[in-house]
Amino acid sequence: MPLPNAAGIGYKPQHYKDLMDTPAPVQWLEIHAENYMGAGGRPLAQLRHLSERFPISVHGVGLSIGGEAPLDTDHLARLKQLCDGLNPFSFSEHLAWSTHDSGYFNDLLPLPYTDATLDRVCTHIDQLQEALGWQMLLENPSSYLAFDESTWSEPDFLREIAARTGCGLLLDVNNVFVSAVNLGFNPIDYIAAFPTENVGEIHLGGHDEDMDDDGAPLLIDSHGREVADPVWALLMHVLRATGPRPLLIEWDTDVPEWPVLRDEAQRAANALAAIRMVVA
């Protein structure tokens, strides 16, 4: 069953009671898979209760789909165990890498968009989808730098991955905005080139503002504040292309009290309501 075309939030344990008591306007939740791979205890107990009430999306952050090394089969087995037990509405991961021979680095590291990377990513997605037994969504990254060796644009790269593997796409609108500012491209052009027909979920999050060595703006995808106004504007542009989609607010650092997060979710719900009126 697909996620509802409604507002969701990235789940944080401090909001458990609020969500169980007064969840509106939140209609679904996303969890980071790796936080629920312990053997037992409160995290898994809470997740069981939440899954009886909300559609759950499992969002992996550690599979290292773009890694040069083969996928970690132990981690793949943990993911499968989590998903088999939870039967989530969706599974998504990132166009990035995070694991190397020397360890796991807990960040979404960038990839050059080359034919070699394309082959590797597609092989890993095939392996993942086969192991899980369903279609995954692949998320576009936020970028701080570019690789001289890249020969593909990011939208074309993602379109080709979706075509080859049959995976869907998770479009993070804040990531598009952050990358556009950081790398100097037009986000409207990016969306125009993006295979919006493959979008199964949309992410929104807050970013911080910094500067690079030359004094140029450098946006940091921090997930630590409200979604910026230009990102909301870009969202409306995206929704006009995709129609209503499951729309998630990510807030992972400096996590606010429930009313603040609820207001962000309400804003997302309002955006979906507005686009339904436009489409109608």
Binding site: D74, H75, T99, S102, G103
Partner: peptide, 11 residues
């Protein structure tokens, strides 16, 4: 010296 050996940061 000892980066995480897997993505389960809670461990």
């Amino acid at each position: 010296a000892s980066p995480p050996s897997n993505p389960m940061i809670h461990a």
